[in-house]
Amino acid sequence: MDIQSPALVTEPRPGVLLITLNRPHVRNAVDRSLAEAVDAALTRLETDTTLNVGILTGSGGHFCSGMDLKTFPAQGVPVVADRGLAGLTRARLRKPLIAAVEGAAVAGGFELALACDLITAADTAFFGLPEVARGLVAAEGGAIRLPGRLPYHLAMEMLLTAAPLPAPEAARFGLVNELTPEGEAVRAALDLAGRVQAQSHDAVLVTKRIVRDTRGLDDLTAYTVQDPISTPIFATTGAAEGAQAFTEKRPPAWHR
């Protein structure tokens, strides 16, 4: 096991970097040191060619309770450069990142999950954006992303009344990819990461970039942005291998 700091544990698995927030005494609230450690782990995920997918989770039965309000007066919001809370909420990651949620994912913790591409969650987990109850706003993606992930009125209820959302209800509305028994969210995330890794790595990266770069654009503009990104993939050896494997009724042999 590779421990980067007391506040964060990173564990490389085959093709996967498991990143665990490790401040269980405060439900993994993010202070400056944890933010910088997460940012470093994400940089490792992006630059290590042996890693294809990241998984973000928390220790002690909770995902993350957001910004550490006890350190906020002295440290401010624990953002890292222009990459947002914990170096994630405003980052432009190339590789897929999965949130594995147990217990509470609230405030900035929910914003970290919303910044991920996929979410697994225990059926006892819950999500929330209680910032208005603290005189704050969900400024690290909550107010921006949530109305596009849930029905508008439900998202606004969460944002304006601080109402929590149980994981089973979140799954019913498509916010959670896989609902699991308590304690199984990481296992489900590893399975999901395996399914991602079974695909063409190049095609996965290009697909994520297209989704990120065209979100919110009208169709005509979106195609204009997409085509220079997508066209080269059709001439790669990976595309040829995918077609040949389909013809020969065998699994493709992808090469990095």
Rank of each mutant, 00 (worst) to 15 (best):
R13N: 10
L8K: 02
D191M: 12
S59F: 06
R172Q: 14
A86F: 03
T214V: 10
I98R: 00
V101W: 02
F110K: 01
R23I: 07
A239T: 11
E131L: 11
P14Q: 10
G103A: 06
A188C: 08
F173K: 07
L114Q: 02
V186A: 01
L150H: 03
Y152Q: 11
R13Q: 14
A74W: 10
A239D: 10
V30G: 04
L220I: 07
T237M: 10
L17F: 08
M1W: 08
A107H: 05
T214C: 08
K70D: 13
A155S: 02
L18F: 03
A253L: 13
L51C: 13
A138H: 03
I144E: 14
L45G: 02
A107Y: 01
A167V: 01
A193Y: 00
G54M: 07
Q199E: 14
M156C: 09
P96T: 11
V9W: 06
A138N: 09
V196K: 03
L56P: 02
P12G: 01
E182S: 15
E111L: 07
L17R: 04
I3F: 07
G15T: 07
A99D: 00
D123K: 11
V77T: 12
A185D: 05
V53D: 05
L159H: 01
T89P: 07
P147Q: 04
A193D: 01
E169S: 12
R44L: 15
G128P: 03
R90I: 02
G54Q: 06
R209F: 09
L51V: 11
Y152G: 03
N52H: 12
T43L: 14
H201A: 15
S230E: 14
T161H: 05
T236Q: 11
G135K: 01
E11N: 12
K70V: 12
F63L: 02
E102P: 06
D68R: 03
A41C: 06
A107N: 08
M156K: 07
A222R: 03
L217W: 05
Y223S: 15
V196L: 15
A162V: 00
R83C: 09
G15D: 04
I119A: 08
F110I: 05
D48I: 05
L51S: 12
T71F: 07
A40D: 04
L136V: 03
A243G: 12
Q199A: 15
A113D: 03
E111Q: 13
P73C: 08
T214K: 00
F126G: 00
L160R: 09
T236H: 10
R32P: 03
T89M: 14
G194D: 07
I210F: 14
V196Y: 08
P168V: 05
V225R: 08
S59I: 01
L175N: 00
H25T: 14
V196R: 03
L146K: 01
C64P: 00
R145E: 10
N22T: 10
D227A: 14
R92S: 15
G216I: 11
R195I: 13
A74M: 13
T43P: 01
A29L: 03
A239R: 06
M156L: 15
A167E: 00
I144M: 09
G60C: 10
G194K: 11
F63R: 00
L150K: 01
S200C: 15
L118R: 10
V132Y: 00
